[in-house]
């Protein structure tokens, strides 16, 4: 099947391994990703910090490009881009005056009809129902699923999972044989866009996240956002300095975890690109499918 796809800047740059794992997993499940033609940056935090109209016009252009290419449904793996696109679509739909203004700035046709999926929705909708076709080995680790801010808030607009203690990523990890840990910081903020300009803040916020994951005995942190990943992974030296401990817990994208479970090799998934080395203990015994996976198959199709 074909599915629209907006990679966003991070996936083309600093978070290459996220893109690689998304593409590899989708290929495995026969999902052909069609890039939104001539896409632009969504504007991220900078745009809405500086100018409201700009922060809407940039995502609106992306959605307009998707519409013109006939892409009814697009997946946006980057949580930040996903958030900006959803918020833009919502505000354009609910504030007609503002929408007219943005359309004038845009100078393009915009309907706002595109259905926007985040990576977990893609996994829920197209991957998990067909998991048993490709299931290779359990991702047999205690995982702290870290949702951060942008996947779940503002709930009134995103309408994804629940804002406090969300469960969808945990459910996915459970289905590939992992054990999600019950922890407290799954929706706390990592500091996001302050990574470069206020590294000290990021070290503190991210430090608390890492600390809580370790306290709850997690072996790996699972993320779905390039910003969370870079703060947890690339900024680890700063985090460790803040914590005063050498923490080594690796940080995997949810697609990398799924990739491993369906037998895609580590290199294709880009594990070597991480700053914190991914040394997951060998637990390669090929076990039977987890019982709950077998029983829920029928329902999901």
């Amino acid at each position: 099947m074909k599915l629209g796809y907006y990679p966003g800047c991070s996936l083309k740059g600093g978070s290459r391994e996220y893109k690689e794992s998304v593409v590899a997993v989708c290929r495995k499940f026969d999902i052909h990703l069609v890039e939104v033609p001539d896409w632009n940056c969504c504007g991220a935090t900078a745009a809405h910090n500086m100018n409201k109209e700009l922060s809407l016009a940039l995502p609106a252009r992306i959605l307009a490009q998707a519409e013109s290419a006939g892409l009814d449904e697009i997946v946006v793996p980057c949580a930040a881009c996903y958030n900006r696109l959803k918020v833009t679509q919502h505000e354009m739909a609910h504030q007609p005056e503002l929408a007219e203004k943005v359309k004038a700035i845009l100078g393009m046709e915009y309907k706002g009809s595109t259905s926007i999926l985040n990576i977990i929705q893609l996994i829920e909708k197209y991957i998990l129902p067909n998991l048993d076709d490709h299931y290779y080995r359990p991702f047999n680790y205690k995982a702290a699923c870290y949702y951060g801010c942008l996947l779940v808030r503002p709930h009134s607009i995103l309408q994804f999972d629940r804002a406090e203690d969300p469960q969808t990523m945990d459910e996915a990890i459970r289905k590939i044989g992992g054990t999600p840990v019950d922890w407290e910081f799954k929706v706390e903020c990592c500091g996001a866009g302050m990574s470069v300009s206020r590294t000290d803040l990021v070290a503190k916020l991210t430090g608390k996240v890492v600390e809580n994951a370790l306290y709850r005995k997690a072996e790996v942190i699972i993320v779905a956002c390039p910003m969370c990943h870079s703060n947890l992974d690339m900024r680890r030296p700063d985090v460790n300095k803040y914590l005063g401990v050498e923490t080594t817990i690796p940080v995997l994208y949810i697609t990398q975890a799924i990739g491993l479970a369906v037998g895609i090799d580590e290199k294709t998934l880009g594990l070597q690109r991480h700053f914190v080395p991914v040394h997951l203990p060998e637990r390669n015994e090929i076990v039977d499918m987890p019982a709950e996976l077998v029983t829920t198959q029928g329902k999901e199709e």
């Binding site: 800047c9 991070s10 083309k12 740059g13 600093g14 001539d38 896409w39 632009n40 940056c41 504007g43 991220a44 935090t45 900078a46 745009a47 910090n49 500086m50 700009l54 940039l58 866009g193 302050m194 470069v196 300009s197 206020r198």
Partner: peptide, 22 residues
Amino acid sequence: NHIISFHKAFLDSIDYTGRLYE
């Protein structure tokens, strides 16, 4: 200033190229 500089640099980058050039 640092924070604003970063935002400006970020937006300049996409103004010129359309995408972020890290």
